[in-house]
Design a protein around this nucleic acid. Structure first.
Lengths: 261, 261
DNA sequence: TCTCCCTATTTACTCCGACATATTCCGTGA
DNA sequence: TCACGGAATATGTCGGAGTAAATAGGGAGA
């Protein structure tokens, strides 16, 4: 299974590089076709393959990646299922227009944030957050039970303890938001929770990258919790509205300046 | 490719029945693995396979469906990509818990409505609509340009002409809502448009199933259009709010009574 | 008797090579 | 110039063989 063979031709060297990249993220528990799907997915999301582009034929591409045709095909099926590509006999496999992509699929979202994320897209996500989460907080204030409140309270305590600079703290943040969406008793909203949770995760990571967060996010979250616990729907929606707005401000300022600032 | 062979054993006959069902929806342009994914997907969404259940092994199941392992595996990859199942060596392929399913994926949504849709789930979808679409109408009122307005106007005219009893009319309805979401200039919202559009399509079909719609939906849509054209954000949100509420009422009353009423 | 580790088996995963099928493309004819 | 039909080509489907991984079960040790 040698990948780094001795090659003289620059073109072939590049191909081997691609094959290495495809298998790079192949840790234990990760299948080969999953790794290929990841590579192709990130390549598409990053714009390496633009909508309308036609990928090389199965045989050629599979050989280039040094994998069997079966593994390559299964990877393509995954991308097809997520609306990124479509293949037809004789016509080949072509990248679909962007509005066909399931951008809210957690895995696709991960691919989108694998490289440098598009600022416009991040804005879109926050706009969606600003629409969904206050409404969710409103429903949660009306429908939550004691178990929901306990989960939120615990998550809040964990956030206080670990802060958002640690992975444990970010996990607690996700738990808090998920708990709210879960308390809405709405399946469709709960599915969005996975997507929005993923997005929040990526963006908070970005915020951390540039500089320590100047503002303490705990009080904002506490206000949301208090309103939900009190069963005050309007207050919950408003508090969540404030929270998302501030998060957007932080993320925007973090993205506008280069990474090292 | 004879499927309906002469069989005497009732057990085998049932298997052949399953295989026939799998290939039934295999029209032109539809691949075999797509048909299998459709069959398994609907079976999972309908509850035939419950979360936690383990599917028969690849070889056994593929043989039962009278397809090759390749086709079966590619179908499983599709389901895996949509979060319905997960497979591991030795452990088999098991159905994931419901909160891992990408219920907003258009294809999954179609599978969910293939059988008798869950009333609670429909309520969830309308609740999501009631959250997203008014907010989208608000943004559309602020950001729409002349091209957007023209598309909406044309769709509205088509709805007037064909009414919702025809497929052309329902397509116009979808176009109208899609045009609004497109006018928000928000990628994330536009992706939701595919999901919500699919949901709207299914539910309007349900409304038709029970009885002719007593109320004319055109004026509601016209009010939304007028507000967006006027650039009045609050009015647009409110008008859309009314529209979704009324649609929910219609669908609910249509679902509560049996199909023939 | 209990715990831990190791082996053995089961299952999915990967690979290979062949054939079938569906489209596109191009050449032929009217 | 257009319509029809055949050939080329890429995807789709098939069957089998071998690999790798994870669980279950048994054996050794405490």
């Amino acid at each position: 299974m040698e990948v780094a063979e001795i090659v003289t031709d620059a073109g072939i060297a590049k191909e081997v590089e691609g094959a290495k990249a495809a298998k790079a993220a192949r840790g234990p528990g990760r299948r080969l076709h999953g790794a290929i799907a990841h590579k192709l997915g990130t390549d598409i999301l990053s714009g390496k393959y633009a909508p309308g582009d036609i990928l090389s034929g199965e045989v050629a591409f599979a050989e280039e990646l040094k994998v069997s045709r079966s593994a390559y095909r299964e990877a393509i099926q995954v991308l097809t299922a997520k609306g990124l590509v479509a293949s037809r006999p004789k016509a080949g496999t072509r990248v679909l227009p962007r509005d066909r992509w399931n951008l809210l699929d957690p895995e696709v979202l991960g691919w989108a944030f694998a490289g440098e994320p598009d600022v416009e897209f991040v804005r879109s996500l926050f706009e969606l957050r600003a629409i969904v989460e206050p409404a969710a907080a409103r429903l949660a204030a009306l429908r939550r039970d004691k178990a929901d409140l306990k989960i939120m309270k615990d998550a809040l305590a964990a956030m206080r303890q670990h802060t958002l600079t640690t992975e444990a703290g970010r996990a607690a943040d996700r738990d808090f938001h998920n708990a709210i969406l879960h308390a809405t008793r709405n399946d469709a909203l709960m599915v969005l929770s996975a997507s929005i949770g993923a997005a929040v995760n990526w963006t908070t990571q970005f915020k951390q990258r540039s500089r320590a967060l100047p503002r303490n996010p705990i009080p904002d979250h506490a206000r949301v919790y208090d309103a939900i616990a009190a069963g005050n729907a309007d207050a919950a929606a408003e508090a969540m509205n404030v929270l998302v707005d501030l998060a957007l401000d932080d993320t925007r300022s973090a993205m506008e300046q280069p990474a090292g600032a």
